[in-house]
Amino acid sequence: MHVPDGFIDLPVSAATGAVAAVAVAVSLRGARRELGGGPGEGLGGERAAPLAGLVAAFIFAAQMLNFPVAAGTSGHLLGGALAAILVGPYTGVLCVSVVLLMQGVLFADGGLTALGVNITDMAVVAVPVAYVVFRGLVKMLPRGRGAVTAASFVAALVSVPAAAVAFTGLYALGGTTDVEIGKVFAAMVGVHVLIGIGEAVITALTVGAVMAVRPDLVYGARDLRAPLRLASATAGAPAPAGAPVPAGATAVPAARRQAQDNQDNKEASA
């Protein structure tokens, strides 16, 4: 749901623009930390641009992947929760914002004056909400891949209506048409709970798929990689695969990753 021009009045659009600008500035700092690898690696901001750019390209492409629902209708992924879980909240906000910016400027999808509103709803609200819910659940639930999948399901389920609630709030402040706010709330949240269920199923399945192949790439579950840590700390020998690594294209990078992890763990334990 990209808000067009003329939907929200100018003062509120300008205010949300300021909110979005501040959030993007904060995320730019945070993303360097999230994408910069370990603190001792000496890699900083220069890793952020290619990685965040490719993740943004992924979100952009994933939004084109249509999931058939029933009777010829189909939905597509919004990707806010997915980005938060896979690459972290700051990078997630950044990537979703860039996608929205490019959709507004290049494809006229969402108005230019409504850019602040769109970024505030779908990036600044949805992504952190998803991440907080996800982290809270991962901490509470027993460790394991099932917990990660369940947590991503709930995180995505909550994030979409949260964006709708944020939009309703903005509409109450600066909507250009006099519609009872209760009606807007009911319509927006009702529709978006349905969308959220689809989003939740797809997000959970996607995170599950990534967890099965490259668990180290799931930012939100980084601290769950305990087995690798223990195995490498004993002898410094190559760690046994902590997760099933399928043969083929991903085997080499995964192995490289694990070697790197061993090194990190040695440094950490030293």
């Binding site: 993740v55 997915l82 490259r214 790439l217 991903t250």
Partner: peptide, 13 residues
Amino acid sequence: LAQSAGALFIRSY
């Protein structure tokens, strides 16, 4: 389809 999305993410990253 979600498997595809996951694979796409890994390839992109």
